[in-house]
Design a binder for these strands. Structure first.
Lengths: 118, 118
DNA sequence: GCAATGTGCAATTCAAAGGTTGCACATCGA
DNA sequence: TCGATGTGCAACCTTTGAATTGCACATTGC
């Protein structure tokens, strides 16, 4: 790993339908760029660029095998992303809940933030 | 919900840094587009467009409040996305593992792909 | 040795996305 | 009532990104 790859960047990598198709195929087993190009409606070069994007965010790992280079989808990377998103989502809900409680009992001084006058 | 909003689309919505900043702010509490524009380095109109994108994939919900419209980040939507990604990531790893096992014992006919007996 | 196959790199095309400005219109508040 | 504030819509500009074509170079296998 070179850099942790910021959240928006990883999501951007997952934001393209063609890349999802590539990932889906690689999820079933290792493949070369040429092999992917044969079963997909885009050129081998285009696929190569997508693979680079995916590799930069850690969603794909590549390995030279003789004449060709085989790529594979990294499930662990996707799992890590999922955990991050889940954590953030929970924090949003928690704060929202707190705000609602605050709004429903505006007359109770004990539940005020810091409970100090202000 | 109007449509389930396909995975790549939701990820694409999360693929922009500006939208992440919007989401982060909205995660702390409801805000109007104008309020967001005052604390961010982009115009109110630009923020409006981002909010529409986020609303279309269910990451933001909006509510008319008198003269203004307040928006809020939907944690549940992010959680749902996280679960989808996690499930997919696991399936990748599972298949990879199966392939590796297959590769490590190529001489055993009992574990061959077609072998039906458990 | 030589054709076939697999890659990498560069130049180019084209559409979409992010951002801005300008304007009209509704609403809140003093 | 009138000014300040908040929205929505539309036109426009600029950059980014997805995809293509073309070419040179390495490797495999007959």
């Amino acid at each position: 790993m070179t850099a942790p790859a910021p959240l928006p960047t990883v999501c951007a990598a997952l934001g393209d339908p063609t890349r999802w198709e590539i990932l889906t195929r690689l999820g079933e087993g290792p493949m070369s760029a040429s092999a992917l190009a044969k079963v997909m409606p885009v050129s081998r070069q285009a696929i190569g660029k997508h693979l680079e994007v995916l590799r930069e965010v850690g969603l794909v790992e590549s390995e030279q095998r003789g004449r060709e280079v085989v790529h594979v989808a990294v499930g662990a990377r996707l799992g890590a992303l999922a955990r991050e998103l889940d954590r953030i989502g929970r924090s949003w809900e928690t704060r929202l809940l707190r705000l609602k409680e605050l709004a429903e009992r505006p007359a109770d001084p004990e539940t005020a933030e810091g409970s100090a006058d202000r």
